[in-house]
Structures are given as C-alpha cells and as structure tokens.
Design a protein around this nucleic acid. Sequence first.
DNA 1: ACTGGCACTCGTTACAGTCGAGTGCCAGGA
DNA 2: TCCTGGCACTCGACTGTAACGAGTGCCAGT
Lengths: 340, 340
Amino acid sequence: MGLDDRKLAVLRAIVEDYVSTQEPVGSKALVERHQLGVSPATVRNDMAVLEEEGYIRQPHTSAGRVPTDRGYRLFVDRLSRVKPLSPAERRAIERFLVGAVDLDDVVHRTVRLLAQLTRQVAVVQYPSLARSSVRHLELVPISTTRLMLVMIADTGRVEQRLVELPAPVPADDVIDLRRLANEKLAGARLSDTPPLVQALVEEVPAELRPAMTTLSTVLLETLVERHEERIALAGTANLTRGGLLDFQGSLRPILEALEEEVVLLKLIGETEPSTTRVLIGDENEFDNLRAASVVSTGYGPGATIVGGLGVLGPTRMDYPGTIATVRAVARYVGELLAQN
Amino acid sequence: MGLDDRKLAVLRAIVEDYVSTQEPVGSKALVERHQLGVSPATVRNDMAVLEEEGYIRQPHTSAGRVPTDRGYRLFVDRLSRVKPLSPAERRAIERFLVGAVDLDDVVHRTVRLLAQLTRQVAVVQYPSLARSSVRHLELVPISTTRLMLVMIADTGRVEQRLVELPAPVPADDVIDLRRLANEKLAGARLSDTPPLVQALVEEVPAELRPAMTTLSTVLLETLVERHEERIALAGTANLTRGGLLDFQGSLRPILEALEEEVVLLKLIGETEPSTTRVLIGDENEFDNLRAASVVSTGYGPGATIVGGLGVLGPTRMDYPGTIATVRAVARYVGELLAQN
DNA sequence: ACTGGCACTCGTTACAGTCGAGTGCCAGGA
DNA sequence: TCCTGGCACTCGACTGTAACGAGTGCCAGT
C-alpha cells in the first residue's frame, strides 16, 4: 500500500520512458537512463509492488512494464509538474491568434493551433449560447409571411433562423416587433430568456400577437432547446502517429466518437471553472474512447467561462506538456475574447 | 489495342468481383461466378491482354488480378450503368431531409445522409457565396465605433463580420448607411458586387464617406476574397472499413487531405453543371489522395448550381451505386433549396 | 480461336530452433 | 532491514525450412 519515494520515482521514470519510446520499459534500461542510485534487481522488486497495486502491467511475461490507466492517473496527480511552455510555443500561439477577424476565425485558428502544438486531436467548443447574453435581435423580412430572425450574442456568436409567419405582417409591424423584442431581451442571458419571451407575447398589442407567438416559439426552439452548441475539430490525422500501437489497432471507434457532437461536448464542455480536467482511458464514460485520454479546460473573457476546449490523444501522452499547452491556449483565447 | 466484347466482359467481371470481395480475382473463380461461356485458360489469355494494356495488374506473380486506375476508368465510362436506388434508400433520403429548419441543418443532415448511404466519407459544400445573391444587408451598432455587418444571401447563407469604424457614427447615419447599401446591393450576385461597392462609396454623402469606405473594404474582404466557402464533412470512420487494405495501410495522408478546405473545394467544388464527376486514384491532383476516388456533383435549386457535394472512398468502390446515390441526394437537396 | 494439360512461381502457413530481453527469486552483504 | 549480484526461467521475436496451393504462362491439340 505504502509507496515510498523511490517506488514513485520508478513509476515516474516508467511513464516518462514509455511515453517517449513507446516501448515497454525494463528494469535495466530504467537504471541506465535515470539516476535512481540502485540496481536493476531493486527496481524489479519495486516494479513487482507497483504491479501488484495496479499502477503498471506487463503486456506479457518477459516484456518490460507499461503504465496502466491508474498509473497515469497517479503520475498526473502527484508525480508531474506542468511544463513551462517554450518561447517558441508562446510565439506560435501569439502569432496564430492575432489577425482573427471574427468568431469563426478565432475558433478555427484556435483549434488548428492546438492540434499543431500538441500533435493531437483538438476540439474547441464555440462560446455556449447558454452562457451568452443577447446583444441584439434583428428581423429581416424575406417576404410578407417570412422573416429571417438573426440573434447576435455578446460572445460574437450569430444565430439565424427562418420564421414562417401564420399570416402576412406589414413591414411597419416587423419594425415594432423588433423594437419590442430588443427592449425586452437585449442584455439578457440566454438561459434567462424563456420567461422573458413568455412575458413578451403577453405584452404585445393584439394585432401583433399571432406573429409574436410564432416568433417566440422559434426563439425558444432555436436558442434554448435545439443544438445550440457548436464544435470545431482539427488534427484527426494525428491519430495515426505512433503507428497502430496506440488505440489498439483500430481508429474506428475513435473516429466514430469524434463525429458525435454530443460526445465531444460531454468531453470538453462540462468543465468546472478554471480547472484543467484530465480524463484517462477508462475513466472516460464512452466505451469507444476507453483507449484515449482527454485534457480539457474552460475558456472565456476574464474569469467567466463561455466554452470548453481540449485535446484527445492516446493514453500514452505527454501529460505535463499537453496540460500546459491547453491551459496556455485557453488563456490566450480568453484574452482575445475580452478585447471584443 | 482492340478489346473485343468478351475482354470487356472479363474486365467488368474482375472489377465487380474485386469490389465485392476485396481479393485479387483469378481466372478460375471468374468463370465460376460469371457466365462467360469459356474456359479459364481463355480468360487467362484475355487477362494477359488486359494487363498488357494496363487495365489490370497482378499484385505479385501467382496472385489473381486487380483492376488498375485505368481499368476502373474504363469500367466507369463504358461498362457500367448507374444503379437505380432501392426504395429503402429513397425513403431514407426523404425521411432524412424533411424537417430541416435552416441551412446549417440542411447541410449537416445531407452530409450525414450521404456518408451513411454510401458508407464513405461525405463532403458537402455550403452554397457558394460567389453564386449567391444579396438578399439583405444589416448593420447592427455594437458601440459608436463598431458595427456588426450581417449579410443574408438568397441561398440562406448568413455571413457576419465586425467592422471597426474610423470615427464614431451616430445611429441615424447607420440607418442611412444600411438603406444606401441595400438599395445598391440587394439582389445583386455576390460576384458582381465589387464594382457596385466601389460606386457606392462615391455616391454617399460626404459625412458618411469615411464610414462607408471602411464598410466597403470589409464587405469586399469578407464576401469576395476571404474564405467565403464552407464545407461540412462526415463519415471519416468509414475510412477504416476494409481493414487497412484500402489506402495501402495508412490513413494519414487521407486524413490530412480532408483537413484542408482548399483540397476539398477543389475536389467537389469545381464541377461543371449537372455532370457527375468521377476522379479515380491518380487522376486526382493531390498526392495524398492517389489511393482514393472521388465522386462529386453540383447541386442547387432548379437548374442552377450553387455548390458541390460528393463522397471520397477507396478506388475499390462501388461506382455505379455511389454515383446513383450522390446524384439522388444532390437532386433532393436541390428541391429542398428551391422551396425556400 | 478455344481448350486441356503441365510446369513453374511465389505468397502463405506451419513448425522448429535460436536468441535475448526481461523477470522472479534467493542467498549473501552493508 | 534493505539492497545487490547471480541464476534459472519464460516467452515473444526472429530465422530457416518445408509443404501447400492458388494462379499463371505456354503449348500442343482440336
């Protein structure tokens, strides 16, 4: 049960070596590459204990040891310090993010940057509507019975939706509708809008009532219930690094999982404020991803969180480096958003 | 040089068998599975000729034959009829596409449908801005020196961009700007706008000149020069079907290519009106995709083409079926767009 | 012009043997 | 008590050999 300092050092050495070489590490190689100050035989005894405790395992007898998910967990929690970023990485981040002209651009640049720096699959959630406020609502007449509803959020997101009106509405009334909607809703958090929208319908003059009812339905549907969340993905080609050793030979389940927005949102979206979350292997709730690890964190202007971002890679991953990069990118993106 | 009917029949049989079994096909198996009315020895002679002409090849001596890219080309051009869709497929298409509420929704549903039906990677280009017309321009004041420019196109696309004004502009002037811009630009094809935008700047009253100049720059940049094209992708997990036999063992180059919008646009965007284009293996201009084939076509409401869609898969692909599906989906999407 | 027959090629599979990295255990020493 | 050197053992990786068989090319015969 008690793991003394040396055993922990052995575990750390195993993780580091395995991550960099991708091959099971044996006792002899270990004492050669690290100054442990003891003989291979001693290390072997320590290894036996570590294995008994479930931190490492042997792929087969007469092979070296490989960390288990539990071993990585211990490593991440207690044996590693977050690596400082290299100046080159800092520069890359800054260079990549200046010159972004709109939210789409910011998100795309971010996700590519993250994929490139970590050499893994990167995922960035667009600022969540639920955590945004309404900046402006616009109603654009398309025909007498059709409106385009455009909502602009303070986070820069713009959502639009076609509205079929139950009856023709004159242009002047559209202007009234817009004014009323903006008066009530501008500045409100999206998550607080449902009651406001309800109230809106009731306060509106009788002749506008039917149109406003339809409008409110669409508003609620689009902004609150429906997909509402968007995700950007990059770096899937990085899954093929490390041959087919990672992910036990088949990318299939991983690729399938990456196509499901719901899955990705669960992975990177449910993050507590300003924590970096690390999910290792089977800690993950999705079977398809039991061979993968996810490092994610929230981002947003200032201290508020408006969305999540992170990377997905093999459990055999450089956790300290990845964590550092994910955090740094999230911080920069937050600053960028704060400027708008 | 001269390939008589039987040699063509042999080629067709080879392609069909190889596509369905994924294994090199020999002369004996061929006469068993198809009514060719001749002996294996005869088939062998025909095969020797086909090989000499470059339509098939042997992976190694004493293996069966496999079609070459050239063989597939001949097959597609002269030996196959487009398969009619099964009723189930028709139903799937209809079911999938009803209920789409906006353009994003249509595109996402389409790309997933296509991936599912063909069991390959599907690519759908959003309606190209260059082929759209301006329906409406909206200017939303964010602050006194910032506007959100929103453009709604007749194809349903909505583009937005933040505009930093050189000097504060009062709200009334914003309304004027909007009116002027809409008067000049509404209804114009996006590709025709540059001269109109130029003219616009010159006609505007002096006090609005600086603001309109900035605005026009952003307009041109956003709508004409910049990325302007969007793409949706689905079904990457299908690349892993057929083990690692397709794509000669590495998905890497394919995944890399799929991350490049430019590449995808070249593949599916440059299609002539109402033609289905088939690119086989090395006919493709990208080295990364020399092991893949692409079937693509244009779509749009009525006879006009506003964008492209298609699928990408191994050269060993069911061309007749895939072509039929791609065409059918494109037609349905066109009808859907025509309704808006 | 087609066919049956035959020798040949060569990848696949199975099996045996060797090699060596790595282990577990134990007895001896600090 | 803890560490170490030594040693026997395991077992996957690799190598070489042999048998197998699918498939071919060619040729002589119809």
